[in-house]
């Protein structure tokens, strides 16, 4: 575990906590894409099936369990408890446009043609694009609450920090996972436009709004 990896994980954890706190305090999930949250639950579920097959550390197991549990809890809040505040009209991105191609790619390009390995690969590919319904929603409404932009910034920073972690691991541990690195770069690139808006607007105290 290097400092980039730890900061990445903490950023990911922070993002989830910001999202839960926003929903809990405001009793609302307005501006949040339920599609993205469903995709994240699918990502965590397919990736962390190794909870049953291998043990890495208490830290690793705890984080995995938290990510899985929080993703399903978020879905429960959005589609049940705070359903009335869910902005489904603006959450119109079609999940199958992501899940189907990503599933096909996971079958074709993977480290080993084994069920768990294919599911792991699927989760890595799916995570890289899972934010698209959320970004689509922000662009459709043309704005995002400040707390939502903090959530997105923390979530985007996590994979960027993981890239530094992979560079570090490559040089110091001779460690390299092409699938994770390529998908991680794609994932980070998708946030670039948002990062720019966050730095130029939100950090200067303005609300994130897109030009009409």
């Amino acid at each position: 575990m290097n400092v980039f990896r730890l900061l990445g994980d903490m950023s990911h954890l922070l993002a989830i906590l910001i999202l839960l706190l926003k929903m809990w305090k405001t009793r609302s999930c307005a501006g949040i894409s339920g599609k993205t949250q469903i995709l994240f639950a699918l990502v965590f579920t397919t990736r962390y099936l190794d909870l049953f097959s291998s043990f890495i550390s208490i830290y690793n197991t705890t984080m995995k369990l938290f990510f899985i549990a929080s993703s399903y809890f978020t879905i429960f809040l959005m589609y049940s408890k705070f359903k009335a505040t869910y902005d489904s009209n603006h959450d119109s991105f079609r999940m199958e446009f992501l899940v189907v191609p990503v599933g096909g790619l996971a079958f074709l390009v993977n480290h080993e043609f084994l069920p768990l390995e294919i599911l792991w690969t699927f989760s890595i590919y799916l995570e890289s694009v899972a934010i698209l319904p959320q970004l689509f929603m922000v662009s459709k409404t043309g704005e995002a609450e400040t707390i939502t932009s903090h959530y997105l910034f923390a979530l985007g920073s996590y994979r960027l920090l993981y890239i530094f972690n992979w560079v570090y691991r490559y040089y110091f541990d001779g460690f390299f996972d092409l699938i994770a690195v390529v998908a991680g770069c794609v994932q980070t690139i998708l946030y670039c436009d948002f990062f720019y808006l966050y730095i130029t607007k939100v950090l200067k105290g303005k609300k994130l709004s897109l030009p009409a």
Binding site: D9, I56, N60, K64, H111, Y162, F176, L178, A180
Partner: peptide, 10 residues
């Protein structure tokens, strides 16, 4: 380059 997978990550 030898490719090792990152299963110890989250």
């Amino acid at each position: 380059i030898e490719i090792i997978s990152t299963k110890d990550e989250l």
